[in-house]
Simulated scan of single mutants.
Amino acid sequence: MKRLLLLGLSTTFIMMGCSDTNDTTDTTDSTDSNTEMNVAEDETVQDEMTEIDEVDEMVEMDHDGELPTDLKKAEDPAFPEGSNAIITAKHMPGMEGAEATIAGAFDTTVYEVSYTPTTGGERVIDHRWVIQEDLAEGTDIAEAGDEVILDVEHIEGMQGATAIVEEAYTGTIYAVDYTSTTDGEKVTDHMWVTEDELEALEE
């Protein structure tokens, strides 16, 4: 009887041990799964917030207006004034994919810049584009890494801001007219897009 009792108790303990091990494994797997789901959800939320921030910044931009009169017209642009092209840039909502009419093609030095707005707020990174004529009067042609003073108001707080040149090249820059693909609004003399941000119409 004692042997049978001891055998029964041993069997019970073994079964309880197995049961505990299985429960722990299931809990761990469940925790790992929940952690992965939470990480994925956090990344999705972060991506959505980044897109919202980008849209908010674009909405505040004002790249259209009267073209400067002191710009040198391009002699042989890939997209002549009056021709049409598809915009591939996303400077403004409703811009990408819109059919544009070239309002002007000019030869100058073009800059991508980063700066802190004079009105305060977060630093603007890699703003595209400003041109040589958008810099403070008397500024020499700049190179990547140079510090310049902006003399244009594409975004509130840009005028008079000190900027770092992230990229610079000399070539053709375009002003374009187009109709927004999102709200149908007509945009006139949007400044600026580069040749790489335009595509020829399909024939």
Rank of each mutant, 00 (worst) to 15 (best):
G121A: 00
Y111A: 09
Q46M: 14
T88E: 06
L71R: 02
N84V: 14
V148E: 00
D20P: 09
A74N: 04
E156P: 03
T101G: 03
V124P: 04
S33Y: 11
F79W: 15
S19V: 06
T119L: 04
T69F: 07
T69V: 10
A40Q: 07
M49R: 10
I131M: 04
G138P: 02
Y111N: 03
E60C: 04
F106K: 05
S83F: 15
Y115D: 00
I52E: 15
Q46L: 15
V124F: 07
D146E: 02
G82E: 08
T50W: 13
D20H: 14
V113L: 00
V152Y: 13
N34T: 11
D53Q: 11
P80W: 08
E81L: 11
D134C: 01
E112K: 09
D42C: 03
R123L: 10
R128H: 10
D56F: 09
E156N: 08
T109W: 09
G120S: 07
W129A: 06
I125G: 00
N22Q: 15
P77I: 05
E43L: 09
E41R: 06
E66K: 08
V110M: 05
D126N: 14
T116E: 11
E156A: 06
G157M: 07
T24W: 08
G104M: 13
C18R: 04
V130D: 00
R128L: 10
S30R: 10
E143I: 05
M37H: 15
E96H: 10
T108V: 11
T116C: 07
I52T: 12
I149D: 02
G121N: 00
T50V: 14
T101V: 13
F79D: 01
D146G: 02
M58R: 10
W129H: 05
N34I: 09
D53W: 09
A40S: 05
L150T: 05
M58V: 04
D26R: 12
W129R: 01
